[in-house]
Amino acid sequence: MEVYAYKCRKCCHVHYPYKMICHGCGENKHDAFDLVPMTKDGKLLTFTIVHNLPPDFEVPTLAIGIVELDDGMRIMGQLKVQEPELGMKLKGKVEVVRHGDYTDYHGMVFYAA
C-alpha cells in the first residue's frame, strides 16, 4: 500500500494532496499527473495529542502530526510514538487509520525510526 503524490508530466512539480491543475506550470489536462509513492521517512514538524476525537474513534487519545519527509514533501499522519518530540526522526507505514461505515481508510502511520 502506498500514499501517492501527484507529479506533473510537464514541469515535474510534485503535489500532495492531489490537485486538478498543476501549481507549478498551470498545466490543465485531465491526465497531467503521474502517481508517485510518497517517501516514508522524515522528521516531525509539529504534532498534537487529540483528546476530543470524532465519535467514530474508539480510543481516548490519538497523536497526530505533520511530518516533513526526506524529499521535502509534507504529510499528515497518525503517530505511534511513545513520547513525540519536535524534529524527531520517523518511519512511515501505510495502515488503516479510520474505519468508515463500510470502508476502511488507509493513511500514513509513523513510528519512531
Binding site: Y16, P17, Y18, T46, F47, T48, V50, N52, L53, P54, F57, L62, I64, G65, I66, I75, M76, G77, Q78, V97, R98, Y105, G107
Partner: peptide, 17 residues
C-alpha cells in the same frame, strides 16, 4: 484525504499551529 481521515479536528489543527 490528507487531513480528515486521520481524525483531525479543528482544535488539533490549531494545536499543531
Amino acid at each position: 484525504l490528507a487531513e480528515y481521515i486521520y481524525g483531525v479536528t479543528l482544535p488539533s489543527l490549531a494545536a499543531m499551529f
